[in-house]
């Protein structure tokens, strides 16, 4: 390993060594153990597990709802970041502080709170019931819970970038005759897009794996409202460790491919 070590600052070997050992013991070796366990399966067995209709339904549901939640947060999060950076208004500080609530609140608490609100007899759910549709115990409820727990990601990645854009650029554009939409399209979008994508990717990854907030509001019906992490739990409860491992490996691989794609898009935007 080649390194340019600062001649007077000590501790490179100690800190790098400790970091690698800790990371290996806690994260890397256990994760590798999962892949080793999955490798006991032949490809056909593996394929049979992950292509079972119930697994595919859960796969579609998990990635679909996480994607929708990340999109919703992409829009609402950007609007919130915009308000918090560009405007001063009463209560701005309170809203700014409370944006992080979903990170601080245990997900189980978020789950039962949202279920109580959006169940057919809940404070908000009853209005939906009057209109003839259900929110809790449907994919819509799952999307709602995921939107809640991933709300801070887009806001907190877009906010600092937006604050750093010099206002003069937009003013110059406006003086040169750009309409607000043109300012948005040609100045704000290119500046914000990389941060936006980072927030989107974080929200999406968290949403795919999220368990605590979802299981209360989902209703957990196989083929309809059963998410992938829950399916892993179900397999574990049946002592089907191999099935759980195969689904876990598939989930990790799909997530990483998607994150890699987002990462590549980001690099192309940053270095045109």
């Amino acid at each position: 390993m080649s390194r340019r070590i600062s001649p007077v600052i000590p501790g490179f070997g100690l800190t790098l060594g400790y970091t690698l050992v800790y990371l290996s013991l806690i994260v890397l070796i256990p994760l590798a153990a999962m892949f080793v366990h999955a490798a006991q399966l032949t490809w056909d067995q593996f394929w049979a597990i992950i292509s079972a209709p119930r697994v595919l339904a859960a796969l579609q549901l998990s990635f679909g709802t996480a994607f929708f939640a990340a999109i919703i947060n992409g829009v609402i999060g950007t609007v919130l970041a915009w308000i918090l950076v560009r405007y001063t208004f009463p209560g701005r500080k309170v809203i700014d502080a409370m944006i992080d609530l979903p990170f601080a609140l245990p997900t189980a608490v978020a789950g039962i709170a949202l279920t109580a609100l959006y169940a057919p007899n809940g404070w908000i759910g009853q209005f939906a019931a009057d209109l003839g549709f259900k929110i809790a115990y449907t994919p819509m409820g799952i999307t709602l819970a995921l939107t809640f727990v991933t709300l801070p990601f887009v806001v907190r990645t877009v906010q600092p970038v937006l604050a750093d854009i010099p206002r003069e650029i937009e003013e110059a554009a406006a003086c040169l005759g750009a309409k607000p939409l043109q300012v948005f399209r040609y100045i704000l979008v290119p500046a914000l897009l990389p941060a936006w994508l980072t927030g989107f990717a974080l929200a999406f990854a968290r949403g795919v794996g999220e368990y605590g907030s979802v299981i209360f509001i989902a209703g957990n019906m196989p083929f309809k409202t059963e998410i992938l992490p829950l399916l892993i739990m179900v397999k574990l409860d049946q002592y089907d460790y191999t099935g759980a491992t195969a689904i876990g490996v598939m989930m990790l691989v799909v997530s990483f491919i998607l994150l890699l794609v987002i990462n590549l898009i980001q690099r192309r935007i940053e270095k045109p």
Partner: peptide, 30 residues
């Protein structure tokens, strides 16, 4: 310090953020 493989190390440090908590539990059961 700067050293080769630093960006990989940073990615590995962030890894638990993109692993589902259920998988985090599963790996210890395994």
């Amino acid at each position: 310090y700067s050293f080769r493989g630093k960006s990989i190390l940073v990615t590995l440090i962030d890894l638990p953020f993109s692993v589902s908590p259920v998988i985090a539990g599963l790996v210890y059961v395994l």
